[in-house]
Each structure stands twice: as structure tokens, then as C-alpha cells.
Design a protein around this nucleic acid. Structure first.
Lengths: 207, 207
DNA sequence: TAAAAAAAGTTGCAATTGCAACAGAAAAAA
DNA sequence: TTTTTTCTGTTGCAATTGCAACTTTTTTTA
């Protein structure tokens, strides 16, 4: 599979002007409502996809990192409540219109031929992440969620030891469980000799 | 967005011979192990993505329906245990190789130009389904999972009444909760006047 | 570098959930 | 049409979880 950076520069340096915008931390990058054909690419920085429910509670629906692809094509809004993408660090974002993939430019240039391939690659990469998350979320206990996720990280790194890609608070969000309950379960796993833990570094002790 | 059937016939009737195979219920369609570039399209029929864990327990990881796209590109195996796609009804499946998207045929024919666009469309559609499932799974209680899913179905149908797309047993699997606990919660929702239920038909009574 | 904010860590308790073990209804297969 | 299988519905009980309310540590910002 082609390297992600190459794909992005491939898209950036295409024949047509694809707008790249800069955002400061806290700024709204886009909203998901009747922008159905919008595809965005995070060139660098991070952002959250946020929904405010009827009671005004903030709900972080998704998190985007450098090189992630997002936009309403991935998440057609089915309710009245708007979804907002908000920068959590300073960032640069490419804005593409999905129709553009079909309505190729007149020249039928080499760029257009590889354009949808590049978008496809990024989308497939996104799909793999989604499947991983679904696999983890579909486990029924916190223990199983943790062990499933750890096992995936372990095989990615080809090692029984690995560093969590985010803080424990964010890990609880990723697993969609109560943080304190997760901490309790991490301690249990540690006490029962399944894992050892030092900050964000985990070592699997079984098998 | 282009109609899914058109996309599939677009792919099927392309310039190159894309193998379409028929499977009887219970046959193995493919395995996910060292077929990293395989993309499959379910033309008709249904299949399950199955994993057997170390204890030999069968775990249904995903379910594919008519018009779904699947294959190891969406689910690179990260563990030793093989994933198997097994037909749950008779079905017809297209087998594509992902590399094919890059290595275009010499003629640079019209087909190849739209090929990756079609795959992209199907993949985006898949992504939308995955996001829906993640949204539902990330709710912490069975009640919230049910109400979130019902709200999505309701807005899809533009109606407070809708029919569940699968059996209650499969609904419990989709939500990844114990079936009997889900039945209990459905009864509670009914008793408390939030919903009314008649077989697979649900009516939302709130707001 | 001091102040503020975010993250980590802990615990009791009540609510929710999974599990097990049923019985009856409906659908599919023989 | 009978048999078999799958699906629906129910309940008690033990285990797990979320919630609330803290303290301590680490990181960020002013």
C-alpha cells in the first residue's frame, strides 16, 4: 500500500487548486449539515467531531489526527443536531468536493486518473481503523475491551510491550467506558498478573 | 450519490474479466490471511465474517449483505487466528484485486477511469454504516444503544414508525449486548411509554 | 516559576448487565 | 404435515459498571 504522505502530496499538488486552510486551536473547521459532498483531509494537527445534544451536553463523536480523512460523506447527519469539527491543535486541512471525482477536468490529466485512487486509499485506511474500533467496542466487558485492544497494539508492534497511542483518559473514551471503572480494571489485570503497566507503557504477561 | 446497483454492474461489465463465483449456503467464500489486496463484492446473498478463538468459540465479527463490499483490505488480520467468510445463504461474489486499481490496463480505457470511483463509492457507503454502528456501540447503556439506533432508523424512514431490518436476536448482536437483557430493556421502554412494539415494528412515542 | 488545567488514581454504592435456565411461538426443513 | 430448529419472551442472581466525589500528580499556560 502506498505511503500516506505521498497520497496527500499527490492530492495537494494536483492540477486543480484544492484549497488548504489553516486553523488555530479551538476554531471550527467545518460543520456536517448539508455539505454532503465534502471530504476533508487533515494535513497536520488534530480535531474533534462534536455533537451537542438537546440538553447541551458535549459529546465527542470522533477524533481526527494528522493524515485522517473526514467530512460529511462519512457521516451523513441523520438527526437535527449539527455535528461540528473543532480544531484541538493548530492545523491545516484540505477541502475537496466529492463530485469532483466524477466530474473530471477537460484535459483528462494524469492527476485525475490517480485522484480517486488516492482518496480510496485514505478511505480504506479509515475503514481499517473503524473496523478495529468496532471489534473492540463489541466486546462486552471492560476487561475484554482492554485485552482485545492491547492484543491489537501488541501485534502491530510485533512485541508484548507497547506504548498506548493516547492518554488513559482518551483510552476510556476510545473504549467508551467510564474512566474510573477502566482504571479499576487495569489495576485488577495488573494484580492478577495479566499485564504490567508503567504510565502509558503496557506489557502483556500472558501466553 | 450514484445508485449502488449501477456501481456494481459498472464494475462487473468492465473491460477486464472480473471473476464472479457462486457459493452455496455454508461454503467458505474466502479467508482473511495473506490476501491483503483482496476486495470482494457481494452481488447477492449474505455471509458472515467469522473468527474461531483459541478455545474454539465461534465469534461473528461482521455480517455482509447484498451489495456490501468486504475483503482483507478492510480488515488486515493482526492476530494468528484466521478470519473466515462463510455464506449464510446461496450467493454470488465478485473478486477484485486491489493492485488492479493502480496497475491500469494499457488501453487506459474509460472503464478504468471509473473503476476506482466505483470502488470508492462502495467503500464510502461501507464507512457510513461503520460510523453508524460505532455511534450506537459507543453508548454506555442498553437503553441508550436502543434509543440511538431507533432514532437513526426513524430519521432514515422520515417516520416515528419503522420496521427493524433484522430479528431481535440479530439486533442484540448488532448492539453487542446480551439478548435477554435487551429484551428486558425493550419491555421497560415499552412500560415507561417511550416506545410501542409489535413484532419487528417499533413506534417512537416521545418528543 | 507560579497558577491553572488536565490527567491519573482511588473508593463506596446503586444501577445495569450478563449469565443461566427456562417455556412457548414461529419459521424452516424433512 | 410432522419434526426440528430458530426466535421470542421471562426471571433470579451474581458480577460488572457507571456515577459521584475525592486526592494527587503531571502538564500547560500565563
Amino acid at each position: 500500500m502506498t505511503d500516506v504522505s505521498n497520497l496527500i502530496s499527490n492530492i495537494e499538488q494536483g492540477c486543480s487548486k484544492i484549497p488548504k486552510k489553516h486553523f488555530e486551536k479551538g476554531e471550527v473547521i467545518t460543520t456536517y449539515i448539508q455539505k454532503r459532498n465534502q471530504i476533508c483531509i487533515m494535513v497536520n494537527g488534530k480535531a474533534d467531531l462534536i455533537r451537542y445534544d438537546l440538553n447541551g451536553n458535549k459529546d465527542i463523536v470522533d477524533k481526527f489526527n494528522e493524515r485522517d480523512i473526514f467530512g460529511e460523506v462519512f457521516y451523513p447527519v441523520h438527526t437535527n443536531n449539527e455535528l461540528i469539527v473543532m480544531a484541538t491543535t493548530d492545523c491545516d486541512v484540505l477541502f475537496l468536493v466529492h463530485d469532483y471525482i466524477y466530474n473530471r477536468c477537460k484535459q483528462n490529466c494524469k492527476f485525475h486518473n490517480s485522484f480517486s485512487s488516492s482518496i480510496l486509499e485514505l478511505t480504506l485506511r479509515n475503514s481499517v481503523h473503524q473496523n478495529t474500533r468496532i471489534e473492540v467496542l463489541s466486546k462486552r466487558t471492560i476487561r475484554e475491551k482492554l485485552l482485545t485492544y492491547f492484543s491489537i497494539l501488541s501485534s502491530k508492534d510485533f512485541s508484548k510491550s507497547f506504548t498506548l497511542p493516547f492518554s488513559l483518559t482518551n483510552l476510556a473514551d476510545y473504549l467508551s467506558v467510564d474512566r474510573s471503572a477502566m482504571m479499576r480494571e487495569l489495576k485488577n489485570l495488573s494484580n492478577e498478573g495479566f499485564i504490567s503497566k508503567n504510565g502509558n507503557r503496557i506489557k502483556l504477561l500472558y501466553k
